[in-house]
Amino acid sequence: MILDRFICIRRFVIPVIAGLALGGCVTTGTQYVDTQDDRGDAVMALDYRDFQQAAGEMVEGMLSSGAVIDPDGGRRVLMVGRITNDTMQRIDTDQLLRPIRSDLRRSGRVVLTSAVGLQGPEDESSMAVRELRNSAEFDQRTVAGEGQMIAPDSSLSGSIRQRMITMDDGRDQVEYYFELALTDINTGLVLWEDQRIIVKRGAGDTVSW
């Protein structure tokens, strides 16, 4: 009788303790991440911290080099050229460019044009409103006049490349190369260029795309 009761208690108590212990270890709820203080584990793929790091280092290098200073004392007018994604991941290259663009603009030395782009203007509004010329429906004094738009004098182009290496111990090494160049459109000369490398090493079965 006593033995039966002991077995019965053991059957209930042990699973309950085990369940509580496992429940305490596993975080099942969704959590917000403080992007200013993220201590999350690294991943083999590119995450926002990598883009932030590459963009931050590049914009800091560009600004401190003095390449963006207009020799005439004004502000450079920048257009964004082609940024190639040569990785095995689907990457929106804007993830790299947006922080660079806003930091450059914030520096007060550069303005960006959205009216010119290699695949058409980034914002088509500037041209669209010009089609309102001679429309009787619009007060022509409020329609943008001819010769008002400012052409860019420099462009930003670059690429993100990836290289995979299997190491002797079976682990994978992924190398990401972020490359950017600032070109003077009038002369075609490269004013500044830089390459930042982010290297990650992980288990061979980790997928990075």
Binding site: D38, Q52, E57, I100, R106
Partner: peptide
């Protein structure tokens, strides 16, 4: 001053 300058560097 906001922007990428406050990122963590390694």
């Amino acid at each position: 001053v906001s922007g990428t300058s406050n990122r963590f560097r390694r």
